[in-house]
């Protein structure tokens, strides 16, 4: 579904990602591990058209999408869900969700997706008319994921969905990710130390200093003591 060939990304003159190649097949959950500040977020953003300077090739269902801006990509079904949430603070939960369905391809499905999202996150339905800025950290995280789902995406890049959440909410996030994936949405997730999410993964990549330092299945990853200890938490 997504195929990346020797991707490089830059912030001004800083070379963040170096020659990354990766493939995510339809229906898979692929998890990216790695220390903070080594380019995981930049990698997801590069795929979703949120980094200006990239080289290499990105294919989406055989179509070359390298260099397309996020507004085009969201319309094609590729959506980024930010680690720091990036909500609209002075808007209500409902308005935030409606803006999630801004793209042309999502508009006709707005009502259906809203129902879907509310059944997935009953808490959001109860707080529909509350301002996003008044929500707790966990609720805001749920809203960010829900807003991403409103785009009617076929491919979601989710950046550390359980970062900073307490253990029971982490499990809740894992349940939701499983649910999203079972609805046929392909997922590329940056995450660490959340066993429930690790269990869902079809494939792992480790990103260190802007390069892929490990690539393999769950079994491969479990066989690697270094990985197991540092990132997996299994």
């Amino acid at each position: 579904m997504i195929k990346i060939q020797s991707l490089n990304a830059f912030y001004n003159d800083f070379h963040v990602l170096k020659d990354i190649s990766l493939e995510v097949k339809k229906g898979q959950v692929v998890v990216i591990l790695g220390p903070n500040g080594h380019g995981k977020s930049t990698f997801l953003k590069s795929i979703c058209g949120l980094v200006d300077k990239i080289t290499g090739k990105i294919f989406y269902d055989q179509e070359d999408i390298t260099g397309l801006k996020s507004e085009k990509l969201v319309n094609k079904g590729i959506t980024y869900i930010a680690e720091n949430r990036e909500l609209f603070p002075e808007m209500t939960v409902l308005e935030n969700l409606k803006l999630g369905a801004y793209s042309k391809s999502a508009r006709p499905h707005e009502k259906k997706n809203l129902e879907k999202v509310f059944s997935l996150f009953p808490r959001l339905a109860a707080r529909k008319s509350q301002l996003a800025s008044t929500m707790s950290g966990g609720e805001a995280r749920m809203l960010a994921i829900a807003r991403g789902l409103m785009s009617n995406a076929k491919f979601l890049a989710i950046d550390e969905p359980s970062l900073g959440l307490q253990p029971n909410l982490r499990n809740e996030v894992a349940r939701i990710i499983k649910e999203i994936n079972s609805q046929g949405i392909t997922l590329l997730v940056v995450e660490q130390n959340t066993p429930r999410i690790m269990e869902l993964a079809d494939k792992f990549y480790v990103l260190e200093e802007g390069r892929i330092s490990f690539e393999g299945s769950k079994e491969d990853a479990l066989g690697n003591d270094h990985l197991k200890e540092i990132f997996l938490g299994i």
């Binding site: 801006k69 930010a82 909500l87 801004y102």
Partner: peptide, 23 residues
Amino acid sequence: TRTGMSVRAVAQNPEGAQIVGIP
């Protein structure tokens, strides 16, 4: 209006606006 909402979105969070696909 949708355009009006997108104007508010960009004012409140330009990054977030880009993420949801607002030009």
